[in-house]
Amino acid sequence: MFHTMAVFLDRDGTIGGDCEVQYPGEFHLYPLVKERIALLKDFGVKIFSFTNQPGIAKGEETVESFHEEMLSFGFDGVYLCPHSHKDGCSCRKPLPGLLYQAAQDHQLDLSKCVVIGDRWSDMVAAQDAGCYKILVLTGAGEEALGKYRHKWKTIKPDYVASNIIQAIQWLFVKGDKDIG
């Protein structure tokens, strides 16, 4: 039986784009992502965005434009850090603040939630919050396993997927459901 309560998806490099931030209007999803989000939702899984967007702090984009974009992709909620890495906030990944906020907002048991991302910071936040961790090799995923592995060397991902579609497939296989 499929027991996942929620899936948190990183944006840039995980569900589309590449390892560089692309603002709403420029950003494009990878093929089949929107359909897989809908399929997870059909099984009662909540889907949340989980992203750092420091361009907001620089005045280059707005929180609202990111919210509108992510909701248009089928997300149930958007959790983003709008701060620069110098701001010292508690929501910027690798800190787990966004996950804790979502858990509080939606009464989630984070031990039954999954984080899918392409960066070491996604994996550290997931580990600290007690979530399952899936690293995708798109975007910065190869660097997370190579150049930046020292930043999360004591953490083992639950699965390493070539892309988001394979990551979601693994969730169904792990949950004894095959999406073909």
Rank of each mutant, 00 (worst) to 15 (best):
L80D: 03
D158L: 09
C113F: 04
H150W: 13
P96K: 03
Q169C: 07
W170E: 10
T154G: 06
R11S: 00
D128G: 10
G130V: 06
V7C: 02
L98Q: 02
L145I: 05
Q22I: 07
K46W: 12
C19H: 15
I134G: 01
C131I: 01
F66W: 13
G130K: 02
V115K: 01
L9E: 00
P24S: 06
E60F: 15
E69I: 11
K46N: 15
A38R: 12
N52Y: 06
F27S: 04
V63Q: 10
Q22M: 13
V136H: 01
S65Y: 10
V160Y: 05
Y23V: 09
A144W: 02
R149Y: 06
F75I: 07
K156M: 12
R92F: 07
L32S: 12
T4K: 11
A103V: 05
D87N: 12
T138E: 01
N52E: 10
G44D: 09
D118Q: 09
G13D: 03
D76S: 13
H150L: 09
D12Y: 02
A57D: 12
L108Y: 02
L108G: 00
I37L: 04
Y132G: 02
C113E: 01
E61R: 15
G97N: 06
N163A: 01
G175H: 05
P24A: 04
V33L: 07
E60C: 15
I47G: 02
L99G: 00
C91E: 08
I134L: 11
L99V: 05
R92I: 03
T154K: 15
D122R: 07
L137G: 01
L99T: 00
V21T: 13
S72R: 10
F50H: 07
G141D: 07
E69M: 14
V78R: 03
E64N: 14
S121F: 11
L137C: 03
S90Y: 10
G13T: 01
G88N: 10
C131F: 01
P82C: 10
Q107W: 15
K156L: 12
D18V: 09
G117K: 00
V173P: 07
Q104E: 15
A6C: 10
A6F: 00
M5K: 14
H3Y: 15
C113Q: 02
I155S: 00
E35C: 02
G74C: 06
A140T: 04
V136W: 01
Y100N: 08
L9C: 05
S111T: 15
Q53P: 05
I179M: 09
N52P: 06
G180V: 13
L137S: 01
E69D: 11
C91M: 08
K156A: 11
E143A: 13
K41Q: 10
Q101H: 12
A103Y: 03
G16T: 05
S49N: 11
L99K: 02
I165F: 08
L110M: 05
P94M: 08
G139M: 03
H150T: 08
S90T: 14
L29A: 07
D105I: 11
